[in-house]
């Protein structure tokens, strides 16, 4: 167990290092001259070569790439990601931290929505295999996975915002503003969770100990929930953890559509404005979050499953 954790942490360090190089490279390998871009944006007109050269020196872009990387990464370790080129020259780290809670709020609501819908649906489908419920859940899951969220978003807006006038469409002033974005975001995860709950429950229900339980006369409800679902829960939890990453990625599009001022909207605005420090900071920040989240999931998995835990000890 301890050896596993040590090995896992070592590879984590390597990946984090890789993430920082990737984040830095994405900003500095981009075509075009960032110094000219920024100078002309500040001036509002064509810049002379001297002005561009001055700006290049000011930004430190005349130094060798390795040196630039070291000073950028050194700052990043201390929480300094530089200043944003758009956004009134705010600190990139401040911008990221200010927007993070809103994206997390959206992702968590979406995840809860997905779990509340998908797990009961999956259990119902597994319980009565090939029933109408089973087929209906299959169709729902297929549609949820295939219909693009950015299309569903507008359908929801049209029905609930424009026709029924039940819910607000843009912005984030009240809890009601959370409803449509989180439903949109939840769809994909709900689809995969429904199918996964069904299949892992079906697999567990085929095990010998379930048959024994039934043969010994346990009520089917007890078999289903106490023995079936409990053993099916580990793969379900893993997928819930993994889909958080995808939720955060999906949030980029959903936030953009609903004008939800989270991390994703910040990043997309930064991309459209070619705000390289912001893009680099965003990639480093989200990359680190994903890496740490994967670590947490792996460790939780080891902790939750005695089979893995004891195997680790034996090794």
């Amino acid at each position: 167990m301890r050896r596993y954790i040590v090995r896992r942490l070592a590879s984590l360090a390597v990946v984090l290092w890789g993430v920082s190089i990737l984040a830095f490279a994405l900003g500095s390998l981009a075509p075009g001259d960032p110094a000219r871009l920024l100078m002309e944006r500040t001036l509002g007109h064509q810049a002379t070569d001297e002005e561009v050269a001055g700006m290049r020196q000011e930004l430190g872009l005349d130094r060798p790439a390795v040196e630039q990387y070291v000073s950028w990464a050194g700052g990043a370790v201390r929480g300094d990601l530089g200043t944003s080129w758009s956004n009134r020259n705010d600190q990139v780290s401040d911008l990221l931290l200010e927007r993070l809670p809103r994206t997390v709020m959206l992702a968590v609501t979406a995840m809860l929505t997905a779990v509340i819908v998908a797990v009961p649906l999956g259990v119902a489908a597994a319980r009565r295999r090939n029933s109408v419920t089973d087929h209906a859940s299959r169709v729902a899951a297929l549609l949820g996975a295939s219909v693009p969220g950015f299309f569903v978003a507008y359908l929801l807006m049209f029905v609930f915002g424009v026709r029924l006038r039940l819910l607000p469409i843009f912005g984030f002033d009240s809890p009601q503003h959370l409803v449509l974005p989180s439903i949109t975001l939840a769809l994909g995860s709900a689809a995969i969770l429904t199918r996964l709950t069904r299949s892992s429950l079906l697999e567990v229900l085929g095990e010998d100990y379930i048959r024994v339980g039934r043969a010994m006369g346990l009520r089917s409800r007890a078999v289903l929930f106490r023995h079936g679902l409990r053993n099916a829960v580990i793969p379900i939890l893993t997928v819930i953890g993994l889909s958080f990453g995808h939720l955060l990625a999906g949030a980029v599009i959903v936030e953009w559509i609903f004008n939800w001022p989270g991390l994703g909207k910040l990043a997309l605005d930064g991309i459209h404005a070619r705000d390289y420090p912001l893009i680099q900071g965003f990639v480093l920040f989200t990359g680190t979050v994903f890496v740490l989240m994967n670590l947490a999931i792996d460790l939780a998995y080891v902790w939750a499953d005695p089979r893995v835990r004891f195997q680790g000890q034996g090794a």
């Binding site: 295939s146 949109t184 994909g188 995808h246």
Partner: peptide, 11 residues
């Protein structure tokens, strides 16, 4: 893949 992304988790 993500897709789930709104991507396709079905993949």
């Amino acid at each position: 893949t993500d897709i789930q992304l709104i991507g396709s988790p079905m993949a």
